[in-house]
Structure formats: C-alpha cells, structure tokens
Write a protein that binds this DNA or RNA. Structure first.
Lengths: 337, 337
DNA sequence: TTGTAAGCGTTATCAA
DNA sequence: TTGATAACGCTTACAA
C-alpha cells in the first residue's frame, strides 16, 4: 500500500496536480465546483498531503520553535497554550522543546530546531550560551524572548521585569510591618528569572535600610514544594526571628507555609509568606498565599500575535512588549493583629 | 544573505555533496581525515543542514507525534519528558499536541500531524472520533495508546487500568472503616480516564454492598483545586454523613481537603480523602493525601522504548505493556481513633 | 480558471 | 572511500 499522492488525486479528478494543490489550499483561483469535486475525491481516497514535500517546495516550514525551561510548570504550559492558540490560527505549528533549565540543552535544542527551518523562534529568557545566541542571530528569522526584559535582547521581547515585580512584593511585606525578611531561592541561578527575583528582594530591602542577607538557596531550579518546606525549616533554624519570607515561586511558598504550620509558627501572625506566579495552590491553600500575578497565557498570546505580525510584515521594528505583573496580597501576608 | 547549503560546504571542502552528507551523518564509510576537515568547514561557515530537504529525500521525518489532553498537568508533562528523553536518544523529535480534552481537537491534531509524516503516533487514551481512529489506522505507522488499557486498542498500549486502580483505592477506604463514601469526578467524561475511575469507584462499593450513589460531577475536565473545594462543599451539604471521598485526581482532592478544613470537618478523623495520581500537592499537604501512585515518566519512557523497537523492527507483535499503579495510604485516610 | 515546467536541498543507489 | 545521478512530492512562476 504505497501512499496516495497528489498526482493520484489529480488523475482521479481528471485535473492537474496544481489544481488539486489549489483546491486544498483554499486558493481563490479555482472554480468552486472543481474544488468541491476534488475535495470529495481527497476524502474518498483518504489522501493526506505531504507537508514535508510542500514545505520543501515552498520553503515555508510552517513551524515556530518554542523553548521553555520545563513543561511541568503551569506558567510555561499556559504560555505554550497561548502561543499554540494564536499561531494555529495563523496556520503555524509549534515545535516545542524544554531545556530543563540547562543552557547546554537549550543550545542543542536551538540547533536541532533550526534544522527544521522554523519561521520564528520564541525562547524563554534564561542563561544562554554564546553559541546559542549566535545561532539565533544567524538564523535570519524573528526571535522573541519571553518572561523577562533582558538588558541585551537577542531580538524582540514579550515579558516583564522579574526584579521589579519581586521588589514590589517585598515592599508589600515591608508595608505590612515586617522587618526581618528572608528569601528562598534557587542555587546556580545565574542569568535566570529566579536570580532577577532575588535581586529584586535585595533591592527592596536595601532601599528600606533592612538586612537582605537572610537568603537560602540550596537546590537547583526548579524548586518544588518539599524543598520549599526544607528550606523554610532551615531558614527558621538559622534566623529564628524571621517575620516574613519571600519565595522564588508559589510551590516553594506553599512548602514554606507547611513548614511554618508543622513547626507551629502562625501564618500570617508570626510569619508572612509570599510567593511568585499565581499558581493554583497559592489561591487555594489555607491561608491563601500572597503572590505576584503574571499571566503566562497573556505572554503566550502576545508573543504569538507579535510573531504573526513579524511574519506578515506588518511590524518591522524591534519590539518590546511589557505585560503586567502585580502584587496580589492574600491572607498569608495580612497585617498581624 | 542566502542560506548556505550542502553544496557550498562541498565546494569549500573540495568534495561532493554526498561526502558532506556522510560526514554529517557519522556514516562509517568516510575517511576520518575527510570527516574532520569537513566538520571544521561546516562550523566555520555556520552551515545548518536543512532537515526538510533531508526528510523529503530520505522519506524519514524524524518526528514522533504525541497527543496529550493537556500540557498543564504534571502527569502528561512527565510522560512527554520521558518520551522526549528516550526518543531523542533514538534521533527522533517530539511533535507535541494537546487536545484540551476534546475529541474534535484531537482529530484535527492527528490530521495535521500526519501531514508531517511522523514515524509513529503516541496518543493518550480518550474519547476519539471514528475518523481519528481511521486516520491513525490508515497512516501505516505504529500507534501507541497510553495511560489506559483500552478494550479495543488502535495499536499498541502502554498503560494501566484506571478502573482497577481506583477500585483498589476505594477498597482501601472501605478497609479503613469508611462506609458512606462519595466520589467527585468530571462531567461529560464519556470515554475518558476519569470515567474509568468512576466505574472503579462503583465497582468497589457494589462489591462491598455499599451505596455508590454519592457522586458529584459538575465541571468538565480538567477539574481543579477550587472546583474540588466547591464540589466537596456541595457533597457534604447533600450527604452530610459522608465519611470518605474519592476524588478523580489529587488537585481535586486537595480542594476537597480544604473544603473540610473550612467547614470544620477533621481529616481523617471525620472524613477520609483520597486522590489519584501522586501529584506533588498530595505528598506535601497537611495532612498528606492518600493517592494512587502512577508514574507518568515511566509511561513515557516505556512508550518511547517501545516506539524505538517498533521502528527498528526488533518488535513486531501487538504490544500491551502494563505499568504499575498502586494505592499509597497517607494521613488523609488514616483509621480514625 | 487551469496547466506546464522547473526546481526546492538532500539522500539512495549504483558505479568508480 | 568517494562521486554522479536520479529521485523525493509538492509549489512557484508563468503561460494559456
């Protein structure tokens, strides 16, 4: 059973392959009757067009390469979903890869993806190798970095300042009367979003004349709930009078919350807990956890829309699109008393 | 700046394109010195092979199509990660799509993916349309269904019985002394894994001579924490003497747990709570939530390995690979007393 | 509205 | 170990 090809359909319809191609493509320049007749034959024969041949011929792969640190993270899953929704409408398909938060994996993925001739590349801000940057620059396609506003962007940007957003949350903790504030982050976070959040923490404390040294960072990204619990336990052992903790992400914050509950520290009366990212758990936990709300979905849809504009030529400047990221106070940082 | 092609590299190296192709392919039949010389030129020129042309010529896309209901679910994220790891080793690339738990989306995705000529398709068990089945059967490539053991499989299977696994968990609740057991599931779950779990719930209660009618299913999949909370609240209103609840998934169970805590029902003393899937939250919550442990990663790696075997011809039978799914009792179903 | 011809960049195949 | 040639199945560009 050798595969049916376009010429087989053409033969059956008594037309040329080109006409079949037009019928399939919703190309205006075809008689409606011809089109319906061909589509019927396509269905009857079970013809499946070969996009490899099509892409090869048209030199348009129909792919957009997307790189995220992890799929197992609602943020990036939502970003991917947003991208997918918009790009599918534009007739483009996602080629999704995840780096596991490792620069060398990202480099390898970029290389592999570029062989598929994506029409654009969308990559999550992170610590990229020089070669990865070079590959992207040489590719001659739009590159969009997301989830941060890099100081030296590769191409376009759809993101926000993790540093400012984290600083704003820490300021909220200060405003709620906390003075001995700790931070739980990730080890080896050079060039990552987590490092930016840590910087924001330090910014805010320094600006308020407070001590920014209560920091713990024992595990490599991604930090999870149990690590958050362990880290909070350790932090409270090392600095027992800590009255608030800023966590690099919500799952980590939930872990920290449970650490307090196990030890018998009341949240928010004794210790305030704050997270980052508005994960489901921070809304549903008891108490609910104050967090920085940022919409992964919006980042995805905005980046997708920008991609479409860049590809259809309706946008030619280097773009910097800022998405909103704001502090949402919840029960875990209620003012004591 | 027109793209560098293989013939440019060949010219620079003073060899034929075919020799460059061999050098790039780690093909044995090339002189090592020639190979290193060519690879150097490839690097210097920044040549990126065009896999579209390569695939077209070799009639091997290097793709494996993978369909999951959602990316925003640690189960499927882990399955994708496991698949990716194994298939990458085999020189294959994932073409990932998510159905949003909708059969018509799955059908469209299958159609789109098949145009890319994947070498195999791996799809999560769910309610598929007849046309989707037909497309897969006609594709002439290995098809692997995962995450369930279908009664009439399309091709190969790597999964477990959601029904038996759920029944075993409910039996555990019965063994712990519970008699008035409820179930929180999803609405419109025809042909899904959630429906199988519901059947398992009914099986176990009927076998024990207990009433299986305390069931609530108000939202479409995927059910989340907040829906779990709402559903549990409603369930306890409708059947106040309920002494245990089986939830279709862990996030739902966590929501149910918080509903109990908000209402003032003690878990596990007054009500036992059980989930499904061993999500992080069920390990880290207070109390921890009894769950059915099943490894999404294992499903992914096993399916990946099977794919490689099917493609290299070292396996030709129709395969049914069962992965383990077992009840893990935790604090939320401790025997009262 | 439809058809013809050429060619997209690589690899299979066979020959040297 | 290397090279020449012929596909691969479609679309572009132009002609009719």
């Amino acid at each position: 059973m050798s595969r049916i090809k376009m010429s087989d359909v053409a033969k059956a319809a008594g037309v040329s392959a080109m006409t079949v191609s037009r019928a399939l493509k919703h190309d205006g320049r075809i008689a409606p009757t011809t089109r319906t007749r061909i589509l019927k034959i396509v269905a009857d024969l079970g013809y499946v067009p070969d996009r490899i041949a099509g892409s090869f011929s048209s030199r348009r792969s129909g792919f957009v390469g997307v790189l995220v640190p992890s799929l197992n993270n609602p943020h990036f899953a939502e970003t991917a979903a947003g991208l997918d929704e918009v790009l599918t409408r534009g007739g483009l398909q996602l080629l999704l890869g995840y780096t596991n938060y490792r620069a060398e994996v990202a480099e390898r993925l970029i290389e592999t993806m570029l062989e598929r001739r994506p029409e654009a590349m969308i990559i999550t801000f992170d610590d990229h190798t020089a070669r990865a940057r070079q590959l992207l620059l040489n590719a001659g396609i739009p590159v969009i970095e997301i989830w941060e506003t890099p100081t030296k962007p590769i191409g376009h940007v759809v993101g926000f300042s993790n540093r400012s957003a984290a600083a704003a949350m820490v300021q909220h903790l200060i405003d709620s009367g906390r003075r001995r504030i700790g931070f739980i982050g990730e080890r080896d976070d050079k060039g990552t979003r987590g490092a930016e959040r840590r910087r924001g923490f330090i910014d805010a404390l320094k600006a308020a004349g407070l001590d920014p040294s209560r920091r713990l960072a024992t595990v490599a990204p991604p930090i999870n709930m149990m690590f958050g619990r362990d880290a909070m336990t350790a932090l409270l052992e090392k600095w027992p009078d800590t009255d608030a903790v800023m966590c690099v992400s919500d799952p980590c914050a939930y872990g920290a919350l449970t650490a307090c509950q196990l030890i018998g520290r009341r949240v928010p009366e004794d210790v305030a807990v704050a997270g980052f990212g508005d994960f489901e758990i921070s809304r549903c936990s008891l108490p609910s956890i104050s967090t920085v709300v940022v919409s992964g979905l919006e980042i995805g849809t905005r980046a997708g829309e920008l991609t479409l504009q860049l590809l259809d030529g309706s946008c030619s400047d280097q773009m910097l699109i800022l998405v909103d990221a704001y502090t949402e106070p919840r029960e875990s940082s209620k003012i004591a008393g």
